[in-house]
């Protein structure tokens, strides 16, 4: 082996393969339980400059619409495009629009972009939660503004001027009544049910009372059983809370255990919270 090879091997941060622990097994079950989206389509776009494409579209619109066509026949656009210094700012005007409408409105601007909006917990609404692109993803969220009830959100994101290829973007939108979250932030993040609540290590009864004071409740419990955790309908109120995660508006899933020591991870989450 060369010197460089030996030196690189010497600083390998994880030389040995890790074993799959219970967390890895649980992750597998979580992943296969997530909803599946339609397969990604990659329409072959003609390599036509965007300006030329728009000019063509404008001509076509003029050509096919009768001069006395009443305005408002077409459904309102689901997306609004605005030029910015370094690209486009796209505002999602209809968070609940059919994904096909997003695709066609992007395509009309010369973009091969697929937008998927799925319900997310309050702290992640408007955030780009992931996606896939033919290049390194460069699409970033620009802003999100919601009404007082956390609904009627306006979500914008930025597409850089040098964006090329295709992309799919997964964006979190507010959950509608009865919907469960596909994307969830930390349950103690700002805007979430347990923001500024040092819930780790609390008894289940205590957490239940805290949640009730915030119009929330425990939807379900999970308890470790060997290599993975299993859902259980109830646990004794004296058990200790290990973790929690938002599952739907006003509801959380709680990982609880009878008596094991819970690592104190509250301090980091409580940074910036009022001292009690």
């Amino acid at each position: 082996m060369s010197d460089i090879g030996r030196m690189m091997a010497g600083i390998n941060p994880m030389p040995r393969a890790p074993e799959q622990g219970p967390g890895a097994r649980e992750l597998l079950h979580e992943i296969v339980g997530t909803p599946v989206q339609a397969p990604r389509r990659r329409p072959r776009l003609l390599l036509m400059p965007v300006a030329a494409l728009l000019a063509t579209a404008a001509v076509l619109v003029v050509a096919v619409l009768p001069v006395d066509a009443p305005s408002g026949i077409a459904p309102a656009a689901a997306l609004a495009f605005h030029r910015s210094d370094d690209g486009w700012v796209v505002t999602v005007k209809d968070l609940y629009a059919d994904p096909e409408r997003f695709v066609s409105e992007f395509r009309a601007r010369g973009f091969d972009i697929e937008l998927s909006l799925q319900p997310g917990s309050p702290s992640v609404v408007g955030k780009v939660m992931g996606g896939d692109s033919s290049k390194e993803a460069t699409i970033e969220e620009e802003s999100v503004a919601c009404g007082p009830a956390g609904d009627r959100c306006t979500v914008s994101f930025r597409i850089p001027a040098d964006f090329q290829g295709g992309a799919s973007i997964w964006l979190a939108r507010p959950a509608r009544q009865g919907e469960r979250y596909v994307w969830a932030g930390d349950v103690d993040a700002p805007g979430e049910l347990l923001h500024c609540v040092p819930y780790r290590g609390m008894t289940v009864d205590r957490l239940r009372a805290v949640l009730a004071g915030r119009d929330g409740s425990i939807e379900s419990f999970r308890v470790m059983n060997g290599h993975r955790s299993n859902p259980v309908p109830q646990v004794p109120g004296t058990w200790l809370v290990e973790h929690a995660a938002p599952t739907a508006p006003g509801q959380v899933v709680v990982w609880a255990q009878p008596d094991r020591t819970v690592p104190d991870a509250n301090a980091k989450a409580m940074a910036g919270c009022p001292k009690s």
């Binding site: 622990g21 219970p22 967390g23 890895a24 649980e26 992750l27 979580e30 992943i31 997530t34 917990s121 992640v124 955030k127 780009v128 939660m129 992931g130 993803a137 970033e140 969220e141 979250y181 596909v182 994307w183 969830a184 932030g185 470790m224 993975r228 955790s229 290990e242 973790h243 995660a245 938002p246 599952t247 990982w255 690592p263 991870a265």
Partner: peptide, 14 residues
């Protein structure tokens, strides 16, 4: 720009 899904809570703890 990545915030992760509501997944891997157990794995993170581990």
């Amino acid at each position: 720009k990545s915030r992760g899904a509501a997944l891997a809570v157990r794995l993170k703890a581990e």
